[in-house]
Nucleic acid binder design. Structure first.
Lengths: 138, 138
DNA sequence: GATTGACCTTCCCGTAACTGGAGGTCCTAA
DNA sequence: TTAGGACCTCCAGTTACGGGAAGGTCAATC
């Protein structure tokens, strides 16, 4: 099938598919006219990539997962390990965002939000504020 | 002061300071030898930037905050608005990460994690799994 | 047969916010 | 005088693509 069809079926943009070929994630054959010719197996890989990417796996993790996908002798423990390290990474990001959120809400709550220039948020950014110094660990 | 001193005082890498000059966030004078010469006001800007960036504001947001910082007639409402839209953005990211986490945990929990190839995670990525289809909204 | 328009190709630039490195200049201390 | 560190500019790479130019191919229509 042509790239347009592969794109529809995999729900990946055409550009993305070409990029994935560039970096060796998929290797479609070429027709006589130079068009890429995707086999069903190629399409499977693309769908796999679409799903894995949408779950937050990086390209390199996808590469690893793909090779496990195609390795009949894989150990499910290897797949699980990648998944769990992803979960740990997500937890770290959530924690970081939560602590950012806390600082920003404290600042926002302290700000009148009127048409006067006095602003605890600016004061904090400028280092001249007097809000909870614990907020300044960043 | 030279860039090295400015770097120490602002806790920004030298490279980053040069970059900030490139994109017009700071405009130090130059000494006769061509070295950048940072004034106290320049240093204040750098510290402001360090703090704002560490709070997750983008470069463009920092640019806006800086101009409010230096605008004696600013309305604190403008600063608060930027801060609150940042909080909203953070909330969105947290939600997204939480829902990713949920899917990954479900998959991980279903996987034995042994030395056998059978793996619900791979099956899900391949689209051949039979786990909760609600997980597949990605 | 010619044209139109959709589809395909490659190639290069741009994104955000830097980081690393090469190659060269300047300053300071031994 | 020389070694080193600090400074300079410019270029390339990072992630995962997206946009757009310039051009070849295909199927249908006139």
């Amino acid at each position: 099938m042509n790239i347009g069809t592969a794109s529809e079926q995999s729900r990946l943009p055409v550009k993305t598919i070409r990029y994935y070929e560039d970096i060796g994630l998929v290797r479609p054959l070429r027709s006589d006219n130079g068009y890429r010719d995707f086999s069903d197996a190629d399409l499977q890989r693309l769908k796999f990539l679409q799903r894995a990417r949408s779950l937050g796996f990086s390209i390199e993790e996808c590469r690893e997962l793909l090779s496990l996908y195609e390795d009949g002798n894989r150990a499910s423990a290897d797949v699980k390990a990648i998944t769990q390290s992803k979960i740990t990474e997500i937890d770290r990001k959530i924690d970081e965002l939560k602590s950012l959120r806390k600082v920003l809400t404290t600042l926002s709550d302290a700000c009148h939000g009127d048409d006067m220039p006095t602003c605890p948020i600016i004061d904090d950014l400028a280092g001249t504020g007097d809000l909870d110094p614990d907020l300044k660990t960043g």
